[in-house]
Design a protein around this nucleic acid. Structure first.
Lengths: 225, 225
DNA sequence: ACCTGAACACCGTTCAAGT
DNA sequence: ACCTGAACACCGTTCAAGT
């Protein structure tokens, strides 16, 4: 009997908001955002749907938690660095990686309108690093707003229109509604088709950082290649 | 009797996919994305929910139509111009305006994964303008990808974290979960609070355009101020 | 303190009628 | 050709029990 109990006991650790949120993110990653329901989430945790309401306020609360969790990943992936350019680049890359790691859940970032603590802490730390490096505080905030917007926007486009995983065939046709006129197919191909995501992202980022550098601290400006 | 009929006949024009999609966008604008259901959408058009299925495949089809419709607005708002910089700027502004005009619906752009015809036509026209101006075609596509990603990313952040309409009080507290520690409040204030959206957007855009200009057509480069 | 059965209003969608 | 009644499985959420 005891061994049976041990087997059935796998989802036995006590329920908690944290465990629910983590399970929700896993489920969305695996099955898509639309597939998530309180019923299925409960089943995933070995419990009926109503039990969840002892630990979370409602479904929206769960989704808020998922966003917070994703921002936590960004926080740990993007520590500040001595060189503020390197630190800012690391932040942009961490955000992009987060979106690519959770393509099904990442759009929640635009939908849920709470500012998670983990996001605020990340901003706080990077602003501090930027001002320490000599940037005016308002410029530091502006820089972070611009860079984070760009990072998220790029990553969203990438996952929304990417033609499957790196290994897969082009299959741009999957992105097109059946009726699409012939002459637009090459456009879709060139715009969404295979190109060097990493390189293009880095290029756009460099553009911004170099521009800010020239504008914000002309003393440290170096000639571009 | 005839006058009564005329009054009741307001939603009487024959149902069609186009009319359904337009009503859906209006409804989302007014009531939020989550509030839209086939039942309510039917009611809005003076019809039972099931009737809609004579004109659209399912709810997802409606949402695809909404995205297509929003891209149509971008298309008409962003004609190409003789000066490619001005044309690209106009495109970025048209996309940002679209998101700001439909804050509740705009996130569908990241969610629905079909490439709408109106989006493809817009890209096609702007690529043509850029190559006519002398840019290499692959660079034209890269430029448009970068600029559109930036425009969407900025606009999403703006509507997601903006503290109410221009006229309203700051109310950054609405963005914060009750438990948020004191020291993060000023961070939220400076990061999401009132700043010059228009100006900051224009600045980031200029950064990119100037960078591309220097890189892609050094012959036409002019010294920056 | 935490889980559940029963129940509610609502949802997307189908299908066999109605006209 | 287009609308509808009835019906289905599913959804979020509540509340009064159960332990």
């Amino acid at each position: 009997v005891s061994t049976q109990e041990a087997l059935e006991a796998r989802p036995r650790s006590p329920l908690s908001r944290e465990r629910i949120v983590r399970a929700a993110l896993d489920y969305i990653d695996a099955n898509g955002l639309d597939a998530l329901s309180m019923h299925k989430l409960g089943a995933e945790l070995g419990v009926k749907a109503m039990s969840l309401y002892n630990h979370v306020a409602n479904k929206d609360d769960v989704l808020d938690g998922v966003v917070e969790l994703m921002w936590t990943e960004v926080e740990t992936d993007a520590p500040v660095k001595d060189d503020w350019r390197a630190g800012t680049r690391a932040l942009a890359n961490a955000m992009r990686d987060m979106v690519r790691r959770h393509p099904n859940a990442a759009t929640l970032t635009t939908t849920q309108s709470y500012m998670p603590q983990s996001a605020l802490r990340t901003v706080q730390r990077h602003v501090a690093a930027l001002t320490t490096a000599g940037l005016r505080e308002d410029l530091a905030y502006a820089l972070l707003r611009t860079v984070t917007s760009y990072a998220l926007g790029s990553a969203y486009s990438e996952v929304a229109w990417s033609t499957g995983q790196p290994g897969c065939a082009p299959a741009v046709s999957d992105l097109l509604r059946p009726g699409t006129p012939e002459d637009l197919i090459p456009v879709a191909n060139d715009f969404c088709g295979r190109y060097d995501y990493d390189n293009e992202f880095r290029l756009g980022l460099d553009l911004m950082l170099r521009g800010v550098e020239q504008q914000a601290c002309p003393d440290a400006a170096k000639s571009a290649t």
